[in-house]
Simulated scan of single mutants.
Amino acid sequence: MLQFDFNISLNDKTHIDLLTGTIKNHHIGKPVFIIEYEDSYQLMFESDYEQYELIKEFAAHFDDYEYTEDISGGNDEILMAVRRVQSPFSSDNFGRRWNEDPIEKNFYLVKIKDALPAQKPQSVIHVLFGKEIREYKIHVGEAVNRNTKEEGYIVIKEIPQEGEKPEFLTGLFLNAADAFWEGYRLLTPRVEADYEDFQKELKRSKKTKAKK
């Protein structure tokens, strides 16, 4: 069975509905994480398929853009970047593995030259469960190490009420982005558990409808 990890960066937020609509049409079968930055979105999901049709379908809406795997010459406008990593655990129907190491492939929907610069993620993450979008939050706060007086950022469970002490989930990070991604890593098991419950409820709902 093939196993792929997808990371899609959309550098124009106005096209997010078009991209999520395209993903919905292709029935990924796994939770799709949608992370909003200041001027862009990042979408991450797993799949047992290469999703060539999904990528081509989205690109077909933009006549003045084309896909390329080579941006070494420099492109100053990248509408979307797709990173696809094939797991070394991928195998055929008989359990035989094709690759011992991860195989990474990158696609870029480009117009002219360079990709937009990286930006700080927002605290809210939207996750696509089938055609339903759910909202999760990662709380990153400023903190100071009492022993070293070092300043940085830390992930907390939730924003404390007045008089309450925050529950720390991580140690100190030097920048907010690193703290955010650690919070994302900690959030992932919860989202996967919620997705399993979502699938179970979906199956129960289908069975109930079938009996009527």
Rank of each mutant, 00 (worst) to 15 (best):
M80E: 11
F129P: 01
A143E: 03
Q3C: 07
Q122W: 09
F4M: 13
I138S: 01
K131C: 08
D64K: 15
K212N: 14
T22H: 03
Y41A: 06
E132G: 05
H15I: 05
R146H: 04
A118G: 14
L169S: 07
D92V: 05
D197P: 01
L18P: 01
Y184Q: 08
Q42K: 09
H61Y: 14
A118M: 12
M80S: 13
E50P: 10
I28H: 11
L54R: 10
F173E: 06
E50K: 12
P102Y: 12
K203V: 13
R134E: 00
I112Y: 14
V191C: 11
I133W: 01
P189F: 12
A193R: 15
N11E: 07
M80Y: 12
G95E: 06
I154C: 08
N175I: 08
D70Y: 05
N25S: 07
S9N: 09
I16A: 08
I34E: 10
Y153G: 02
F89C: 11
E53S: 15
G141N: 06
F173Y: 13
Q51E: 03
E100R: 09
S90R: 02
S87C: 01
G73P: 06
V140D: 04
K157I: 02
A143Q: 00
L187Y: 13
N75L: 09
F168N: 06
M80I: 13
R134Q: 04
T20G: 00
A177Q: 11
R97F: 15
D92T: 06
D5W: 07
I34A: 09
D76Y: 14
G74C: 08
G141I: 02
V155N: 05
A118T: 13
V32R: 04
V140R: 03
N145Q: 02
Q51P: 02
Q51I: 03
K165I: 03
A118Q: 10
I28R: 12
W181H: 11
G163N: 04
I103K: 11
N93R: 04
K206M: 11
L172C: 07
G95A: 09
K165R: 11
G171K: 02
K157P: 04
I16R: 06
T22V: 01
F180T: 03
A81R: 12
I28L: 10
I103C: 11
T20Y: 03
I71Q: 08
D17F: 02
I159N: 07
I55G: 03
I78Q: 12
F58V: 08
D92C: 04
H15Y: 15
E150L: 08
F168K: 08
E192M: 13
R190T: 10
K113V: 06
R185E: 15
H61E: 14
Q161V: 00
A59F: 05
I138Q: 04
I16Q: 07
E162I: 07
Y67H: 01
N175K: 08
F129L: 05
D197W: 00
F198I: 00
W181E: 03
Q51D: 01
E53F: 09
H26L: 09
L116S: 15
L174G: 10
G74R: 13
I138W: 00
H27M: 14
S72G: 12
Q119S: 15
I133M: 05
